[in-house]
Design a protein around this nucleic acid. Structure first.
Lengths: 353, 353
DNA sequence: GTTCTGGATGTTAGCGATAACCTAGAGCCC
DNA sequence: GGGCTCTAGGTTATCGCTAACATCCAGAAC
């Protein structure tokens, strides 16, 4: 641990090599998957690493391999809760790989603005991009990325498309499970508030809802469906329309938590008790879901884990080839139904007349 | 742009040096502040950099300088909106400096859990830590950090303490400004919902409120004050207590947006129109503030910028010395009063009787 | 026995940037 | 004019790690 110009006397491969009686190269091999290393040697090295508390220096590694060092993340106002979870996961994966995350906000809705934000990446030198929703389905973004030859991996793009890389949950199945939960509680009149019409996930969630309704022997046409845009405001409007009607539905299934939170607000304002008078459920399990009273029954997406997986997938893809599209790849991660306090059996028949 | 083993044919200092007819060292000097470089040379190099679109390789830089490569961020559930903003800023600064951000959640409230989370950092090799609220005021965290000899910079720690490093806004002045806004609108009966009693910022905001009230010639004792904990739930309870009373206040100043949002919910439920019947204001300007109807008048903290500044301050501190405490440093960044739709003049006298 | 094969290791040479040191002049003093 | 200081700039030697190639040796193949 000689005093070089650098302050911290970190443990290096050399130190480990000496301690284990092998060469630095062998240590390096053990650290990275380690092919062509005899078992006994591997153990000796592993022991030395453990004893010396060796941690590879990521800067040196990425310098040596000359690999991707910056990967982009183009975000456009998913809810803050979603973004922070997403960042936590993405960061963990990026750090492990020794590469930096370059964030780029993409405020505008217009194609021009989206293309412009995307172009930023071509200038900064990011070697790949991950796209959380809703940008993963934006045509301008994808076109621009393709034009610049920057590979990307989408997260939560509703449905698989050939040649694309995607990490998602099974929106269809999750929505169906939620619907079954309501039906099992006894609800027969369930209203559905849809998500943004441009996002495939919206359609998938609706499909799942319809499927579960039919599977229970009910008529999907009898269920009221309101349009929505995944925003609090749109949830407000949709719920107002729903609760104006009589008889009112005994349950509302909003395609995301923001709209569900809005539904809770409107119901409260109309003097309804949740879940006694009406059940309300959401989708996503963002923090908002527990910041509302009562806490929402919802579907949890493992957002951080999905982001982590997406980064890993992107890096693997970059490692493999120079950037040609490859064949695409899709990974479906498990979701979870979270039952909280916003659901209960419907009021006794006739209660809402 | 020879084909080395690395795929990307990046521009290096050497390329720039050749193009400008100088040595690599000179280019490096120009890039980093550049002392001892003649003006004409500097310009030539700058021109070459621009022309070749040179971007220094952060990995190589941090390897060469042997500086901090990992800085920690210990977070404990500030609102998701706060965290995501914070991360955006911190990430930008970290990337510029070529160092990685290591996130560590600190869930527990107990001293043990907090100390344990902090200890994680000693193991991973982070060279410094930044502490967003509320952890910046946690005694166990600070003790543990000191024991491990890891320098830290706090963000939004309410008040300066000798020997500590801190980036914050002027909570006192901001709260006073908000209070003046309400008084200027004509409010004379303003209720205040306090923040978490353990955080200095809560006290500062309250002090600011009292100060402005007195400055306007009103009696602070006449203003109702409710305890709160910065949570949505505590805001709910506080507002219910306030609105049960008669006459009810014409305005409610909640010490953060989460509680203000709760206040809006309760007021709505009681059939009050905001801002016609009652004005409600918050503090922080997190996304929640615009996810509620009407959008909240609040105080904006430049969260991302504060995080960025904190990281820069930490790095400067690490660069300077090995880690001894130094003398502490404090930076107060400007806040901004954001007037939206949740404030208006009070109802005509007697309206609330 | 000789050649070949292939797995396990060591050696060398960078990756891109900068710290530390060195050099050549310019300006200045006595 | 010799010695000195100061400045602008170049040289060299790493930082820690890993590709690429070289080496060595056991066993297989002939």
């Amino acid at each position: 641990m000689r005093a070089t110009r650098r302050g911290q006397g970190g443990v290096t491969v050399q130190d480990v090599a000496r301690a284990a009686g092998v060469s630095a190269m062998t240590v390096s091999r053990v650290v990275n998957g380690g092919h062509n290393v005899r078992e006994s040697t591997r153990l000796a090295v592993a022991e030395a690493i453990e004893r010396l508390q060796y941690k590879p220096n990521p800067a040196a590694r990425s310098l040596a391999v000359g690999e991707a060092t910056q990967i982009g993340l183009l975000y456009a106002n998913p809810s803050a809760a979603y973004l922070s979870q997403f960042l936590i996961g993405a960061l963990a994966a990026a750090r492990r790989a020794g590469c930096h995350l370059v964030l780029e906000p993409c405020e505008g809705e217009s194609a021009d603005e989206q293309a412009e934000s995307t172009r930023q990446f071509a200038g900064a030198d990011v070697q790949g991009v991950i796209l959380p929703p809703p940008l993963c389905e934006s045509e301008p973004v994808r076109t621009e990325l393709a034009a610049a030859g920057i590979p990307s991996v989408a997260v939560a793009m509703g449905r698989h498309e050939a040649g694309t890389y995607n990490v998602r949950i099974d929106d269809f199945e999750a929505a169906a499970a939620m619907t079954r939960h309501l039906i099992d509680l006894g609800h027969r009149d369930i209203a559905f508030i849809r998500g943004h019409p441009n996002q495939v996930a919206s359609a998938e969630r609706y499909r799942g809802f319809v499927h579960a309704v039919e599977a229970a022997g009910l008529d999907p046409k009898a269920m009221r469906v309101e349009p929505g845009y995944f925003t609090y405001r749109s949830g407000l409007a949709a719920t107002e329309r729903l609760l104006r009607q009589s008889p009112r539905p005994t349950a509302i299934f909003a395609a995301n938590d923001d709209m569900a939170a809005a539904a809770v607000g409107v119901a409260h304002r109309q003097g309804l008790h949740i879940p006694r008078d009406i059940s309300i459920v959401g989708f996503d399990d963002v923090a908002l879901a527990t910041n509302v009273w009562p806490e929402l029954t919802t579907v949890r997406q493992p957002i951080a884990q999905m982001a982590e997986t997406a980064v890993a997938m992107l890096l693997a893809r970059l490692r493999k080839r120079g950037g040609d599209a490859g064949e695409g790849e899709e990974l479906v991660v498990p979701h979870e139904l979270i039952v909280r306090e916003s659901t209960a059996p419907p009021p006794k028949a006739g209660g809402a007349r």
